[in-house]
Simulated assay, not measured.
Amino acid sequence: MNLDPQDAWVAVQDGATQLSGLVVSYAFSVLGAILLLIAGWLIAGFVQRSLYAALSGVRGFDATLARFLSTSARYAVLVLVMVMVLGQFGVQTASIIAAIGAVGLAIGLALQGTLQNIAAGLMLLFLRPFRIGEYIEVNGIDGTVEEIGLFATRLRAIDGTYVLAPNSNLWNEPIRNLNRNGVRRNDLTIGIGYDDDIELAVETLLGLARADGRVSTDPAPAAFVSELGDSAVSITLRYWTSDKDFLATKLDLTKAGKLAFDGKGISIPFPQQEVTYRNGAPQP
């Protein structure tokens, strides 16, 4: 079969025209994609900085939470830009969104424990059951809060040791914050002998509490008989003090109580047991 040179030339021209159209079309698509990427990158950075500045300007708003939300907003903008870029080349964005959702679900199932800690961290940052510098007790975990992260909370135990507690462990248990209210109550109990003067012991402890400037006068300290034990009458001094003075006041009043009782002849008995012998044998 002989091909007419004129027809061949026409076919070549048609092919070149179609090829040049495709090149121009894809060139514009590539150029548009590049411009979208540049604009999206700049917009994402602007959104991150603006949101972080706005949240940081809110009084009492946690810096960690502000950083997390601003970074999340930045990545959300970048994901949207990538979907738009793929749309420039004729890719069905609906399928892309469905694929992103499927990948997100798979990642969520694989990182279920980690995401649980993140969710707990966000709740801790929003509701603020404790703040940095406060002393907390949570199901055997106790210490001064040094950092509240998205995955875990760092504490310093009373003996100075380092404690890293997963946020989910803190969020799912009752939290005892020893500093939040600013004041704490203490019950100082000292046992005296049954033959000692109860009223003298009560007034002695009350006098010690009233003389200590760290003890609150409202509510006023109180002293009372709290228990009749096997070998001692328990006298309890109940008083309130600031959370910062709690431990020092407790130690000082315990020592002062012992010295005051010794000075006034009030005994502090140790456990005793009387054994009665009948016919040379101890009786129950």
Rank of each mutant, 00 (worst) to 15 (best):
G113T: 06
I132T: 12
Q48D: 11
I132C: 00
I43H: 02
G60H: 03
L127N: 11
V58E: 04
V103K: 07
S50P: 01
R67A: 15
L109E: 04
G143F: 02
F130Y: 12
G113A: 07
A76M: 14
V79H: 00
G121W: 00
F126N: 14
Y52D: 12
E146V: 14
L125E: 00
L122T: 15
L111N: 10
S56Q: 13
L55V: 09
S72E: 06
A98Q: 08
E137F: 03
I97V: 15
G90R: 04
I132E: 07
L86A: 06
S56W: 05
A76Q: 02
G121A: 05
G113F: 03
G104W: 09
A94S: 12
A119S: 06
V47D: 01
I141L: 03
M82Y: 04
S95K: 13
L105A: 15
V79F: 07
S95G: 12
A110P: 06
I100T: 02
L125H: 07
I132Q: 03
F89V: 07
L51A: 09
V81K: 00
L69C: 06
R131Y: 05
E137T: 14
M82G: 15
F61R: 08
L86Q: 01
N139W: 11
V47P: 08
D62V: 07
T71P: 00
F130S: 04
R74F: 09
L69G: 02
Y135W: 11
L115D: 02
V85E: 01
D62H: 08
I136P: 02
G87W: 00
A99D: 07
A63H: 15
A98H: 05
A53H: 12
L105P: 04
I97P: 00
Y52W: 08
I97E: 11
T64V: 14
A63I: 14
G143T: 08
S56T: 12
G143N: 06
M82T: 15
G108V: 08
Q88V: 13
A99H: 02
E134M: 05
Q92E: 02
A120E: 09
